[in-house]
């Protein structure tokens, strides 16, 4: 085309959305917060921070720095014996070997690590740094949420695209599958999967994805039904584009904003589910740390008045989830104003 430069190019949907998003102050602030968390997670994953979160750095349940060290426990009530020790060596059968043992013990070197009395955000009942745990926990929890949401999105998009594009038999079959998965209450479905699949981080991701794809499927299907009869898709068909090409090269980019919004809502939901599952003993195993396992530990600590682990995990989680939901809301408003109100 010769006059291509003369034709004014219309602005792309992403560019328009970005312009709208930039005008949204709440959205921008939450984007910055989420990016900050992502940097923290990258740092934790690469071992720059919180690498030795399992090291017992402080005395058990050391309070946060601003509270000062814990008051010393009241001294033992039973008084020690007074007077010189009684000499038992002539009747003690082990007496001849004490010297030998003492020599052997002297050969072993033990280093006494100085345990801190306070840490910036306190320590848990093993003396592990709560701040390091929270950072590492952020990495695991967000990883679980994001990966499960990605997986659920792939499943939902693929099935939704097939159902919406082909309809007929394929559509009927997938609708049946959808009905089956939504007939069982969510949490029960998660439990049934958990019962057969064992425990572990990858299992949690898989369970959440396998039970959480239905809402996204429904929406993608509706979008594909709408789009598959549009002119641009018919035109693509006329020039010989295959079904796969029409589905994923022509239609998918045009509905990707819907998918993105849905996926970000899934992330928030999955992060919350991980916490509950970990508490119930079906989630992240005990040798790893997540917000869920931190909160589960915090229950017994709170009774003893050690509130700092609970507070730290709650603040980390609430900040991330609030920022992420507000960001998702802003994305939704920027990308597809029609979706407003859909939770």
């Amino acid at each position: 085309m010769n006059n291509a430069s003369a034709v004014q190019r219309s602005e792309g949907v992403w560019r328009i959305a970005w312009r709208r998003f930039r005008g949204d102050r709440v959205g921008m602030i939450s984007l910055v917060v989420v990016c900050g968390f992502l940097l923290l997670i990258a740092a934790a994953a690469s071992g720059i921070v919180a690498k030795d979160w399992q090291r017992e750095r402080a005395v058990p349940n050391a309070p946060p720095g601003f509270m000062g060290p814990a008051a010393a426990e009241a001294a033992s009530v039973i008084e020690g014996p007074k007077g010189p020790p009684v000499d038992l060596s002539d009747i003690d059968p082990l007496a001849p070997r004490y010297k030998e043992w003492a020599e052997r013990a002297a050969k072993l070197h033990t280093t006494e690590e100085a345990k801190a009395l306070t840490l910036p955000l306190g320590a848990d009942h093993f003396g592990r740094d709560v701040l390091a745990k929270a950072i590492k926990g952020t990495q695991v929890s967000v990883f679980v949420g994001v990966l499960a949401a990605l997986l659920a999105t792939v499943i939902g998009t693929l099935l939704g695209a097939l159902a919406g594009f082909f309809g007929k038999r394929v559509g009927d079959f997938l609708e049946w599958l959808y009905n089956v998965f939504t007939a069982v209450p969510d949490i029960l479905l998660i439990f049934a999967f958990a019962a057969v699949m064992g425990r572990g981080v990858s299992t949690v991701v898989l369970i959440l994805a396998l039970t959480g794809w239905t809402g996204l499927y429904r929406q993608v299907r509706a979008e594909f039904i709408k789009h598959s009869s549009r002119e641009y898709v018919r035109a693509a068909e006329a020039i010989g584009a295959s079904s796969g090409s029409r589905m994923f090269r022509h239609i998918l980019p045009n509905v990707s904003h819907v998918i993105l919004v849905r996926m970000s809502l899934l992330v928030v939901g999955f992060i919350k589910s991980e916490v509950i599952l970990s508490y119930l003993g079906l989630g992240v195993p005990v040798d790893q740390v997540s917000w869920g396992t931190m909160l589960a530990e915090a229950q017994s600590e709170l009774i003893l008045g050690h509130w700092w682990q609970l507070a730290t995990a709650t603040v980390f989680m609430a900040t991330f989830v609030t920022a992420f939901s507000l960001m998702a809301d802003a994305w939704r408003d920027a990308l597809d104003p029609k979706l407003r109100g859909a939770e």
Partner: peptide
């Protein structure tokens, strides 16, 4: 954004 777990604890 606060977990249900925190409320009950």
């Amino acid at each position: 954004s606060i977990s249900f777990l925190v409320y009950v604890i």
